[in-house]
Write a protein that binds this DNA or RNA. Sequence first.
DNA 1: GTTCTTGACGAAATCGATTTCTTGGACTTC
DNA 2: GAAGTCCAAGAAATCGATTTCGTCAAGAAC
Lengths: 320, 320
Amino acid sequence: MATIYEVAALAGVSPATVSRVFNGNTVSPEKTRAVLDAAGKLAFTPNKTARRLRKQSSEVVALLIPDIENPFFTALARGVEDRASESGFSVVLCNTDDDPVKETNYLQIAASEQMAGVILAPASDEADLGAIASLGRPVVAVDRTTPYPVDAVKVDNRAAGIAATTALFDAGHRRIACIAGPVGIESTEDRFLGWRQVMTARKSVVPGDFLQHANFRADGGYQAMRQLLALPEPPDAVLTTNNLMGVGALQAIVEAGVDPARFGLAVVGELPFLFLTPPAVVQVRLPARHLGVTAATMLLERIGGDTQAARTIVLRAELA
Amino acid sequence: MATIYEVAALAGVSPATVSRVFNGNTVSPEKTRAVLDAAGKLAFTPNKTARRLRKQSSEVVALLIPDIENPFFTALARGVEDRASESGFSVVLCNTDDDPVKETNYLQIAASEQMAGVILAPASDEADLGAIASLGRPVVAVDRTTPYPVDAVKVDNRAAGIAATTALFDAGHRRIACIAGPVGIESTEDRFLGWRQVMTARKSVVPGDFLQHANFRADGGYQAMRQLLALPEPPDAVLTTNNLMGVGALQAIVEAGVDPARFGLAVVGELPFLFLTPPAVVQVRLPARHLGVTAATMLLERIGGDTQAARTIVLRAELA
DNA sequence: GTTCTTGACGAAATCGATTTCTTGGACTTC
DNA sequence: GAAGTCCAAGAAATCGATTTCGTCAAGAAC
């Protein structure tokens, strides 16, 4: 790894001039050529660490997501990455496991690594964005919002819940249960509220145990579905508020010998790698990739110096 | 963000002493306490960038994988991350899309960012590890090997191909086709060789077009399967050499109205989020997470100064 | 012809840590 | 008690870029 000094020496100029050549400042054509020649010969690449220390900023953004093994979040990450790398930024992916401690830890790292910004799917309302914010680094919340006044991109979750539930009604189901995510996570909470709103509007009877709170993963959906099926008067349909719980629920349904084409299943999100499921499954497609692209775009705007008041962009989910 | 100088001033010591406190060097108890007090008051966190510049190394490793949306690679990534963060390292995930250009670019970044090491699923034999290697940064190849003398962790792919194909034979199939990945990618190439070996050993007739090369994703498997089914004398079973092509193939089979329980399907890898597939599908489970953990462990050993000759660890896949 | 402006470019400061060098005092050792 | 040993801790160098500041020469303006 050649340094700027070696290049300067070989080109017969000062290090400052080499730096100027690489940063688009005014340098005479001859010196420019001399520098580029020397840089080429030495295979010079500017040391990013030194640059970062001096500039107090880098071309790296952090993306904090709860679960890298959930296809929804990988699609989102894909969107962020594609958009960021278009602008020459790298993305550091961090798994928070929905754990506020890990989340805080990663935010700390992002700050001390001089990252240019953070895109965050907050694990909790407690996410301490203070440290980052006081450094003037932009933050964009994605999928979920936070109490802090930062940009956010989310989905109209209530509408998604309403659409899914309504579709089940329209298919003739009446006793519709809901498998919701953990309490306190905004996105699934809103979807659950959509379900409740429809049930109330349609004056449907909803026994208390038709609402199940489960963890966000397939095993959570599986357990919850088994409990629902074991009820003395089980539901005739169910809504799960995310994709993986839908996977689990479907598994439980099939295992129980219930015909999934008769029993109504609606999922907010997509059943990943779906191929054999009966067409009766209602899915509300979430624009995961688009969510990522939008968040990255907003973040890049902020990094570029945009200082308008915090915006919240709401994307619509569509029934598929 | 307080600096070491402010802490030093507040504690009434020199910056060097503050550094020593934070790096476990000999400092008298009183001064240690003074420094820790001051650091606490100022919420001091050492600037990682400055440290990295000085130490010429960081506690970040890069992980280069071809496709972040493939569950095999996310599971692998998960393994790497869990192991790395156990030792206080962060992982930067990079998507190469199996594109040698992107791959080279990321390797370049890893070098100029002073990353401590790289774990790489090589997109091609051309991956230029020279730059990284000359810096003395360790590299571990995972899932696939490289011509460079670096540590590697892989799966016994030939055995996996043999096991899968044999299982189809044992289930009574004879006309077994193979949907292999792109030419030149070691892992699937070996699985395909396993298939061929079994077919030859069993003296099975294999028409030329029973071997299809497809891209690595679901659509590749889907297209290839459709072509196979459209043959005048189609196969009665098929082996796909990775998970996503298996998803695509299954979809094509179902769509074509063929009973997937009668038609033999074997997949090297797991059908992700599988729930409704007929039990007849043969899957060879790959130890994805374990691959990641092992690679990370080897890399950390190297970072720790281990200089023994390059090792290759081969993990076994098991029929599920 | 003298003064002013402008622009290229080198010297040196800077970012914030770590690490080497140096110093001075306490403690051994004979 | 003089000489040698050891160790805590400050001063200063260092990592490799960027950026401020100052200089000098060429060209413009009067």
